[in-house]
């Protein structure tokens, strides 16, 4: 779970805010997105959805194993 929380911080506040200037020097190939800007407005949200999905699958598996 702490790993997932780390991902949460890394992709949103990290890539989207702290290192955005650094990442903005690249653009995503074939698009007009600067990388940092993309993380702030699109990437972070996609990452959030995946984090919660992984969490739900893993934790519910742990719960199930515990009941058997």
């Amino acid at each position: 779970m702490s790993l997932l929380l780390f991902c949460w911080f890394f992709f949103s506040l990290g890539c989207g805010v702290l290192w955005v200037d650094f990442l903005n020097q690249w653009t995503i190939p074939g698009t007009g997105f600067k990388l940092g800007f993309w993380f702030a407005q699109q990437g972070s949200i996609i990452a959030f959805v995946l984090i919660v999905l992984i969490y739900a699958i893993l934790m519910n598996r742990v719960d199930k194993a515990d009941h058997n």
Binding site: M1, L4, L5, W8, S12, L13, G16, V17, A40, Q41, S44, I45, F48, I51, V52, Y55, A56
Partner: peptide, 13 residues
Amino acid sequence: LMGWTGGFVLLAL
């Protein structure tokens, strides 16, 4: 965008 969606990660976890 980040604030109003990122909160759900905290909430869910």
